[in-house]
Design a protein around this nucleic acid. Structure first.
Lengths: 225, 225
DNA sequence: TTCATACTTCGATCATAGCCGAAGCATGGA
DNA sequence: TCCATGCTTCGGCTATGATCGAAGTATGAA
């Protein structure tokens, strides 16, 4: 009777299929319009509008008006993290369907988790960076001096990231792998930079595809021994 | 339309107040009977029975029959972890009530998270252990040789823990603090040992109370500088 | 055997909330 | 000014599922 309802109200919001679709559509960190989200969820515009109002009221989303469009995005990385955790739980408990399609495999290989790299590649990135002493563990990950040099060379403006409020490094548990990958401001910046360098192409949805050049560069930088 | 429903089915289970109450009642890792859970949730026996059947079918709980009682407990630490994550999200997004009662303060100070110590004390434990080089970070925490010696002296049978399937150390994000505390087999063993040594008394629910002797011993072992 | 306890199953009730059609605003372009 | 687009609000329909009373099953005790 005490704290149950607190989690129930949030969980109930995630528990409707249409809303769950909306949220997963937003998990790539982009902002989408009401119409786009309605289509993603498979409901009409007015139904989606109602759902979005609820998600907004609960501060799970933030809205931004631009002309006659209204863009919604997740209110923070923690929302995405909870969604990933739920996916992991669903998978562990067998709620997931057996249908392991081709898209599923692509998702497992590399995808965007809010705004950073996840999947096999994401886990490999963090493990490689740790092995080389670029990032040091601890419950809160930290960038080493060697790491600062490395990512500086990589083309990341660390001074700018330092100024932001967002933590530089953050371990984010991966639902498909069972290890963490790198989130936080640095994780986001690395993904941006990889896209900029054309190492990675962003497909529809959350799938990320490595270019040939990207796969080579990635393996050289963070690859397995 | 793809992965949304996967998370929705799990989230919907957590989204009912009665079920949420049941789950939070089980978050201390103990096994409770149907009647006890019915009372905790504030519903009749038959209603609780129905809820438990659903949670069991979804593998969020496991049942164990003993005489004419049926005991339920969470099917794993990951379930508790998701619940904690949801609490954290509910708090961040303001869904939590302002009522910050005395019990709330006690919960923040020290509580059991499935089977290990959480709250301020839990975070202090991990930070202290890291500062002293007993546990080494990394995305997956690891026990150092110094740590093995220390916790061996503390009265923990590490050889037995090594044999189990459960990972020894596990970082578990704390919803009240914003840092991790120590979970895993070692985290559980430490809590057991502290209770055995009468450092900690287990009150009703999830609240843990440190004895005078316990607080002293704890501070000496892991306390702040 | 008989009774009591612990729990499950069935059935009926009822409230909630998801859904869409239609109508109403607001913004932007012609 | 007029219309098209994007979105919100309203109203009514409907389905889902939470709830509890009553009856049924299993276990343990007398």
């Amino acid at each position: 009777m005490k704290e149950g309802p607190v989690i129930a109200s949030v969980a109930a919001l995630l528990g409707d299929p249409a809303r769950a679709n909306i949220l997963t559509a937003l998990m790539d960190g982009r902002a989408l319009t009401v119409s786009e989200l309605a289509q993603a969820a498979g409901v009409t515009l007015q139904t989606a509008s109602g759902h979005l109002a609820k998600l907004d009221a609960a501060n799970l989303l933030v809205a931004e008006k631009q002309g006659r469009h209204r863009y919604f995005r997740l209110s923070g990385p923690d929302v995405a993290q909870v969604l990933e955790a739920l996916m992991g739980l669903a998978q562990r408990t067998g709620a997931t369907r057996v249908r392991t399609g081709p898209k599923d495999a692509a998702l497992r290989s590399a995808r965007v988790c809010y705004d950073h790299l996840a999947g096999e590649r994401g886990v490999a990135l963090l493990q490689g960076a740790e092995r080389q002493g670029l990032i040091e563990g601890g419950q809160d990950l930290a960038l080493t001096n060697k790491g600062r040099a490395f990512f500086g060379d990589f083309g990341i403006d660390l001074a700018r990231l330092d100024k932001g409020r967002r933590p530089l490094c953050r371990a984010c548990l991966d639902w498909s792998e069972r290890h963490s990958h790198l989130g936080g401001a640095l994780g986001a910046a690395i993904l941006d930079r990889m896209i900029e360098r054309k190492w990675i192409r962003r497909d529809a949805g959350r799938v990320l595809t490595f270019t040939c050049e990207g796969a080579e560069g990635f393996d050289a930088a963070f690859g397995l021994a």
